[in-house]
Simulated assay, not measured.
Amino acid sequence: MVTEAPAKDAKTAQILEAARDIFLELGYAATSMDLVAQRARVSKTTLYTRFPSKDDLYTATISNECERHGMRFSPECFDDLPLREVLIRVGTRFVELIWSEAAIRVHQSVMGEAQRVPEAARLFVKAGPEQGTAVLVALFERLTQRGLIAVDDPAFAARQFLAAMQGGPYCLMAVSLAPSPTAEERSAFVAKAVDLFIRGVAPGR
């Protein structure tokens, strides 16, 4: 189920920005609510009113990054577009998210802490990959209803699409062995991946 992101007031946005920087700097385990309140320049009462626990703050921070890159959308918002354009737009948003410096650093932090602090990995998966997949599954179900794709399992197709977008230089970037691609390289990668994917899901194939 896809959940709508809560509305953010100025204080909430301030807290999320500070939390993002601290989680990136220190990781989940070393981040404290006191430090976030201090860095965000808010009282602990203000912080805990909006985020009752560090777990809540961490998942909200991850979800906020996904939202900021356009990965919290309603599938109906693409109803006026042809299939290729829908997939290009969604693929571009997803690539811009996972290839961003912040996302790469979060991924590295989570992997580094996974054995010692498995809760951090669980929260990351819940707020990021699971929610992102749910959004894509809803989109692929909509595309199936519109007759733009012909698949027996929209959920499987959606996950394969996300997997395709995690190809290319991403694996090397995740271990700091490749620089971030240029905007032109990103666009070319998404277009090629989408065109290859469409051959497998288009009706009448």
Rank of each mutant, 00 (worst) to 15 (best):
V2W: 14
T3D: 13
A7V: 07
K8R: 09
K8G: 01
D9C: 08
A10W: 06
K11P: 00
T12H: 03
Q14R: 04
L16T: 01
A18L: 04
A18C: 09
R20V: 03
I22Q: 15
I22W: 13
F23C: 09
F23M: 11
L24H: 06
L24Q: 03
G27M: 00
Y28D: 03
Y28G: 01
A29L: 08
A29V: 11
A30H: 05
S32M: 07
M33T: 00
Q38G: 03
R39T: 03
A40D: 12
A40F: 14
R41G: 08
R41V: 12
S43E: 07
K44N: 03
K44Q: 07
R50Y: 04
R50F: 02
R50C: 05
F51Y: 13
I62V: 15
E65Y: 08
E65I: 03
E65V: 05
C66A: 07
E67Y: 08
E67H: 10
R68P: 01
R68C: 00
G70H: 12
G70E: 06
R72T: 11
R72D: 15
F73Y: 13
S74I: 13
P75A: 15
E76H: 10
C77T: 15
C77F: 15
F78G: 04
D80W: 03
L81T: 03
L81H: 01
P82E: 10
L83N: 06
L83W: 12
V86N: 11
V86F: 04
L87Y: 01
R89L: 12
T92W: 02
F94R: 00
V95L: 02
E96D: 07
L97Y: 05
L97M: 02
L97S: 06
L97F: 08
I98R: 09
S100W: 11
E101S: 02
I104P: 06
I104T: 07
R105F: 03
V110K: 08
A114C: 07
A114L: 11
A114S: 13
Q115M: 12
R116Y: 01
R116Q: 07
V117Q: 14
P118A: 00
A120D: 12
A121C: 09
R122Q: 14
R122G: 05
G128Y: 02
E130L: 12
E130F: 13
Q131K: 04
V135R: 08
L136N: 14
L139G: 01
G147E: 05
A150K: 13
D152N: 05
D152Y: 08
A155N: 14
F156I: 12
A158C: 06
R159W: 08
R159N: 08
Q160K: 07
Q160Y: 07
Q160T: 12
L162W: 08
A163Q: 14
A163H: 10
A164K: 11
M165P: 00
G168Y: 06
C171Q: 11
C171K: 14
L172P: 00
M173I: 15
M173P: 15
S176M: 10
S176F: 11
L177D: 10
A178T: 10
S180K: 09
T182L: 01
E184M: 00
R186I: 11
S187L: 00
A188N: 04
F189L: 03
V190A: 14
A191E: 14
V194K: 15
V194Y: 15
D195Y: 06
F197K: 06
I198V: 09
I198K: 02
I198W: 04
R199V: 13
P203N: 08
R205V: 14
R205H: 10
